[in-house]
Amino acid sequence: MIPPRDPDSAQPDDEAAPQDATGASAPAPEEEAKPHPLHRRLKSFVKRGGRTTEGQARAYELHGPQFLLPYQASRLDLAATFGREAPTVLEIGFGMGEATAHIAGLLPETNFLCCEVHEPGVGALLKRIGEHGLTNIRICAHDAVDVIDHMLAPSVLAGVHIFFPDPWHKTRHNKRRLIQGPLVRKLVERLKTGGYLHCATDWKPYAEQMVEVLRAEPQLQISPDATPDGYAPKPHYRPLTKFENRGIKLGHGVYDVLFTKR
């Protein structure tokens, strides 16, 4: 999940789907004085292009009817959605689904509700679902903020995963990052007591912001295993992808930030 990035580019790679707090493109210089879109509409992504392969298209046809969950402006019955009572984890932005499929296979007793708007990524995860015989994933190809606001009741989630969101490297674009107070408060409301929020990034300034934002939320407490800087050991369920391994070899740090609801 850690491809080489151009430090002057705010555009994400092809393996990790971007999450952005606004959904807006980088502002032109003359637009800088305008009200930021975050104040008008919080969103969890930047829409981007990409080609869906034949295999991904077949996966849509074969597995979409069972595993794609249409967006609805009403509360989900999670037990009916998954066909069982089980802890449910929300994942925001799963990229091409490599880590998602691994975790779902490792934790079959947990349900995973996964939000992603990148069509090839959705197709790729559907393909992995078929290849690995996974049954505990449902995909909503819609803005996660709408899903949180309208489909999830308070105190229904056992956890939230947000792995390698778009770091928005440029200082003037930092406000577009996904992990900000307004979204964190929404997520905390949907977490059960004892539920967790797990974020991961390879961009240290973003990791520092994550720790700062989550520490500021009074209903959250940091992992007892965290370092003084606020970083937790990598949980056993999160895999090292080929891109993350490549980043580590290049000297990139990888930071896991883990908090639980009081």
Rank of each mutant, 00 (worst) to 15 (best):
P18V: 12
L250C: 02
G123D: 12
T260W: 14
G50F: 12
L152M: 13
H36Y: 07
H102P: 03
K249F: 06
H236K: 05
L152D: 07
P224I: 03
A99T: 12
F112W: 04
A79T: 13
A226K: 11
M151I: 07
K234N: 01
A10Q: 09
R58H: 11
A99P: 00
E131G: 09
Q219M: 13
H161G: 01
G181D: 15
A24D: 04
A144P: 00
G50M: 11
Y231F: 15
D256S: 07
T135A: 14
P12L: 12
P235T: 08
V254S: 07
T241V: 05
L69S: 13
R58N: 05
F164A: 10
Q66V: 10
Y237R: 15
G64Y: 01
E15C: 07
P65A: 08
H252A: 13
V213P: 04
P235H: 08
Y231E: 04
P120M: 08
A200I: 06
C114E: 05
V156K: 05
Y196L: 12
I139S: 06
Q209Y: 06
T52C: 13
L113Q: 08
L68K: 05
A21H: 02
A158H: 15
M210F: 04
K242T: 13
H102D: 12
A24P: 00
Y231T: 14
Q19I: 05
G105I: 11
N136L: 04
H36K: 15
R5K: 09
C140R: 01
G130E: 00
R190C: 11
R177N: 08
L191K: 02
H236I: 13
R40T: 11
I179Y: 06
P12A: 14
D77R: 06
L90N: 01
N136S: 07
P120I: 04
K249L: 14
P12K: 12
V160S: 05
K204Q: 15
D6V: 00
L113M: 08
I162E: 01
H118M: 03
V257P: 01
S25H: 10
L76Q: 03
G230V: 01
M210D: 01
K175L: 06
R5H: 12
H173N: 14
T100R: 02
L38Q: 02
Q11H: 09
A144F: 09
A86D: 02
I137H: 06
I139L: 15
Q221R: 15
A207I: 04
L187C: 10
M1P: 00
C114R: 02
I162M: 14
D166W: 03
G130H: 00
H198M: 11
R246Q: 10
P167S: 14
